[in-house]
Amino acid sequence: MADVTLNNIVKTYNKGEVKAVNNVSFEINKGELFGLIGADGSGKTSIFRILTTLLLPDSGTASINGFDVIKDYKTIRKNIGYMPGKFSLYQDLSVQENLDFFATIFNTTVKENYDLIKDIYIQLEPFKTRKAGKLSGGMKQKLALCCALIHRPTVLLLDEPTTGVDVVSRKEFWEILKGLKQQGITILVSTPYMDEANLCERIALLQNGSIMSIDRPNNIVKQFPDTLFAMRANDMGRLQNVLRSNKLIKSCFSFGDFHHVTMDSGELTMDNLEKQLIESGFQNVIIKEITPTVEDCFIYLMGNAMEN
């Protein structure tokens, strides 16, 4: 059964000039960890605000636990936990006070649902008298998650929870999410980081308010149509220029130490290319076949969308 459904949601700003969400439909199953992957300005936050009943869509319907986001907004507000992209707790209240406050306004107590937040709260405990505004970025996010969980929501909506958080804290945060998923909580999480996509069960790739693809990360990777090669040589800048000017090379993007390249494999092989590159004066040429990542797929789909 689907816990969250969106049907043809459209949202525009500035009287229709800016199309933030363009005909988006998807479903999230109960207990699923679903990721919205997209660059800044791709419409992630607008979708979150519609689902949390803070924003009315121009057209289309959406529901959470079967409740309509417009008609039954009061019921939905009791059942969801929302963590906005911007830290939105009271910075002048302490960790303990924030937690108590959010527990009481949901008519519950910290004690009642302590088992749910225990693993996270243990890390916060040493700072429980510290003001929320004085916490580190990672700690702030953990506190915000605690506050969003304190009333035992059925659906958890996390808008870019790991943006601006260090690598270690990010990793911990995803571990926490996995734990929560095992408790049967449906989680919708958005992120601009492609490497986090693999940690979700299913992902939707979002670009300019439209969904380019929805599937499991490994299926999305399988949909990559070409064989992907990683290449490096002594002069990476010139290498990219040379590869891009070659008509048989379909695409070439720089990925850290390597360039990810697809080519017309009927005409060109790895060995041919290596020979050509050495003739052009490159040294230490390395070419190897690799499996594509979600990011490769994202860039490929983005290129397709632009051509259309």
């Binding site: 949390t52 009943t53 803070l54 009061k74 507000r77 009791k78 911007k86 939105s88 306004i105 949901f106």
Partner: peptide, 13 residues
């Protein structure tokens, strides 16, 4: 301005 109203609005208050 601080954004806390966002969090308050998603509660049964």
């Amino acid at each position: 301005e601080v954004g806390t109203i966002e969090q308050i609005n998603v509660t049964p208050i």
